[in-house]
Structure formats: structure tokens, C-alpha cells
Design a protein around this nucleic acid. Structure first.
Lengths: 110, 110
DNA sequence: CATTATACCTAGTTCTCATAGGCATAGCCC
DNA sequence: GGGCTATGCCTATGAGAACTAGGTATAATG
């Protein structure tokens, strides 16, 4: 509960978006989200890795072992066609949801 | 999984906001969220009522039985001082999180 | 009188996240 | 060489929250 619990329902969207630009390994996905958000999106490894496995089981991602630039062993993930379609769906769903929440929040107070 | 699962982490914020303008009963909270969002925010009763009870246990809400305009028995909830403080916290947290997610989504693609 | 909408409730399932460990290797400093 | 940190992966367990799928009761409507 330290960070979010807001992740539920958006974590897979975020991961898909991270990988849409090209393959990345899991650790790099977590680092990218954290750094590109100034620390707001801080995904615990205990949430990140299970999510990646889950998404691979669902056919949204595919993976292969390889090496990082510094010669370390790492598992690289890429978005499958199904994953690409899901990314667009989730994108729309998020936009719709966020707009609705903002609408309620900004409602003029009686 | 039919509707959202995006609610996790925002449902309490939405409820607090609904009640910030004055007391409402549970059923009316659900209806208000659904109608004011064009159906996007459709909270199941199995999520709504437990959330209200939970928030009352936490001291964010207080309740009292009363009657609706049409003479029906209903439990009315109002926001406590703690609930008011929480509303502002959650508001900030949501704004920060939503901005971060939008930032990742809109990142220029390689 | 039967059906619908209102208005409340909860037990059980399922899913996801966080906690809290574990393993292995590369680079750094002492 | 020895210890520490960062990288990179993993999972078992627990907690928490939403959904499913029921239930109750009453007022209005056909």
C-alpha cells in the first residue's frame, strides 16, 4: 500500500505502452516507469514480474532470453499482435474512465 | 471484470466526492455516479455497500437512517472531518497518478 | 395481483498488488 | 581477496477490493 493500489487495471496498459516502442526486459520496464514519472509509477517487483508472466500466458506478450548492453542475462519482452490490439482497447478505456472521474471531481459544488 | 477493476483505488475518492455536497444514501450514490458519467462509472452494489461500510469503519463517513423524498427508508451518509481531509489527499494522489499515466501514454513513440 | 424499481445487505470467489524473502553475477571500494 | 551495491530474475504468502449471486423488504405500476 506504500505506493499506489491505483495500479489495478492500469498496470497492464502501462507495460504494453512501455514495450510498444520495442523489446525491453522486465527490470528495464520497472525502471523506465519509475524514472519517466518522477517516481510516481513505482511498480514493485512482486507486482511487475507476475504481471509480465500473466500477460505472456494471455498471449499479449512474448519473451526471449538475451543479453543487456552490459552483458547481463535478461528476459526481453515484446508485444504480440493481440497485445497491440489490447493496448488500444485499454488506452480508450483509460481515457474514458479518467475523463469520467475528472468529471465527477470537477462537478461544481452545491 | 465486466465493468472496471479500474475502480480499485478511486472508488473511495468518488464516493467522498459524491457526498461532499451533502448527505446522500447509498443507492443514490451509485445512481449519481452512473448517470453523471453516462454509464462509465457503474459501481456494482456488491462493491458499493461494502465500500460505504468500510469507509464508515475507517471514520471517513458517518451514517444515519432516514427517509427519501418518496418516503422510503434509506441510510444517509455524510463526510466526517477525517473524510474531508482524505478527499483532498486522494484528489491530489489521483491527479498525480493520472498525469503520470497520461505522460507515459503520450510519450513520443520511437 | 404480479412485476418493476427502489433500497438495503452479505457470503464466497477471484484477481491483483505488496511483503518479503530467495538466487546469481558484475562492478566497485577497501 | 572480501564485502557491498546494483542489476536481473523469481515466487509463496497474505491482504484487500471488486464482482457474482444470491437474499430481504416496500412502494409504485401494470
Amino acid at each position: 500500500m506504500s505506493g499506489s493500489d491505483l495500479f489495478t487495471g492500469t498496470l497492464e496498459l502501462l507495460i504494453l505502452r512501455c514495450l510498444a516502442g520495442g523489446p525491453r526486459h522486465g527490470y528495464a520496464v520497472g525502471r523506465f516507469l519509475r524514472e519517466s514519472s518522477g517516481g510516481v509509477l513505482d511498480v514493485e517487483e512482486g507486482a511487475l514480474y507476475p504481471a509480465l508472466h500473466r500477460m505472456e500466458r494471455k498471449g499479449l506478450l512474448a519473451s526471449s532470453w538475451g543479453k543487456t548492453e552490459t552483458g547481463r542475462r535478461a528476459k526481453f519482452y515484446n508485444v504480440t499482435p493481440d497485445g497491440g490490439a489490447r493496448l488500444e482497447e485499454e488506452r480508450v478505456r483509460w481515457a474514458e474512465y479518467a475523463r469520467a472521474v475528472d468529471g465527477v471531481l470537477q462537478e461544481s459544488e452545491g
